[in-house]
Design a protein around this nucleic acid. Structure first.
Lengths: 262, 262
DNA sequence: GAATGTGAACGGCTTCACAGCC
DNA sequence: GGCTGTGAAGCCGTTCACATTC
């Protein structure tokens, strides 16, 4: 779920549900692993297990792409890898710029998963003049002043924001003005963008807070309700006592993207 | 009876929907900003705008927590900050361990938002002996061998995995065995955990792939390919050979690059 | 016999719209 | 008059179950 848009989900998608799109990368990863082991075909059951979803959902998801399986047999791994890659637009090269080369930005620049799937880090941009020219992950950092030129020269349409929250909106505005239409935001702030621009956010503290909510609930399952606050005092109250009991939080549940800020 | 636990008990007392829980941190962030500006009250409309959601949704979300607003007036900022914090379990201190101190792990350790919301980095753990003792973000890295002891000594129930994919499941198993019941996973792999353990995942390459999908669609919006929307328009029995559409630029499959981070 | 593809049922989340209270 | 709180309606996604195809 891309956030940041004002209204209109504009989900003008050509039939493929958002929830399905969000799972395609998962299937692709599982298929890639199978491909590397030279496995020729998989059943929906096997692939679903590898991707961590249930088989009915997987089959339904694939049905939106077309009929790529063979009844009684399963799916051809290589063929499916290609189809999903194509559907996701990974058969082409996507130049990406990362703005904000702090700890996080550097980590992203070094992240192998970027380059491995059609994404190419075209440039690293930072507002600190002292960073200019300094190579990070083998790529020289450029100054924010040249942002517009960098975007245009490289035909960049995807930007990653890893700046402090205070600078995020401004950077976002400049990226958009320069032609970027998809943004991955790591800054813990809500970005406002014009229609037609996609924003996805990843906020670490939000993910942790969601975990804390469930964690708290596990701990207070038998005992009491609200009250107090208490501080510190972390007795050895083994969270995993005999209590345990249900805890319905079975899987990671749908998918709320995720995490971390700058 | 006291049993019959199916899946989702939730029927028990306060059944706050997952979707709502996922938004509470967002509201909390917006409220905190208002609080810092000493704004006394907000209307659902204003707060919703600040959080990037619509007001009806916000009111519905708050209704699950209780009636904390005043009709005709709005919500008291301070009071709401407290109520949401309490609901999320942030009025207590959560010690967290980060396993895998590479670029990403270091970025997480340095992330300020951690401490600011009830989370405390209790320890940094890495498998590389060369890292041991080296301070990152002011905290000395400890070796994986001591993982169990660290977890127990600090009463840690939340763990963050920032290791390479290959090590993730093993680390996860050890964390869980040592008592961790909530995991935030940055490794691009599906983790298997026992019931009662919560896992949330964050996958950077997946987020980018989702953006690529939408980006691609925007680009192809002008060239009307086969925009056969409709519903049952998919009966195509013939799996259309590998030929399929030709729209694809170049058909480079280049084989499958590994989806894995460093 | 085996496994896909899919209509239909189901359940959860969002949006609407208005009653209720300040 | 302004704004919250909430039943009701609508939408979307998941799950079921089975006809269909190999």
């Amino acid at each position: 779920m891309a956030t940041g848009r004002t209204h209109r989900p504009a989900t003008r998608s050509r039939g493929i549900p958002e929830a399905t799109v969000a799972r395609l990368p998962l299937y692709l990863r599982a298929l890639t692993a199978l491909s590397e082991r030279s496995v020729p075909t998989v059943s929906s059951e096997e692939l679903a297990a590898a991707a961590g979803v249930n088989s009915a959902k997987l089959r339904k998801d694939f049905s939106y792409l077309g009929s790529y399986g063979t009844r009684g047999v399963g799916y051809d791994v290589e063929y499916l890898v290609y189809q999903i890659s194509r559907e996701l637009g990974l058969t082409q090269d996507w130049p990406v710029v990362i703005v904000g080369i702090g700890n996080l930005g550097a980590a992203l620049a070094n992240y192998g998963g970027f380059a491995s799937r059609g994404f190419r880090v075209a440039a690293l941009i930072d507002a600190d003049p002292a960073m200019a020219g300094k190579p990070v992950a083998g790529i020289p950092v450029q100054h924010t002043d040249d942002l517009e030129k960098i975007i245009k020269d490289n035909g960049v349409s995807i930007g990653v924001i890893a700046t402090p929250a205070g600078a995020a909106q401004q950077v976002c505005d400049r990226l958009v003005a320069a032609g970027v239409t998809s943004i991955l935001n790591f800054a813990p702030t809500v970005l406002t963008v014009p229609d037609g621009v996609d924003v996805r956010k990843v906020d670490l503290s939000i993910e942790l807070q969601i975990l804390a909510f469930h964690e708290q609930r596990k701990a207070g399952e038998e005992a009491p309700m609200e009250t107090a606050v208490g501080e510190g005092a972390l007795p050895a109250s083994a969270p995993r006592g005999a209590a345990a009991d249900d805890s319905a939080d079975q899987g990671p549940d749908g998918d709320v993207p995720a995490v971390m800020p700058a």
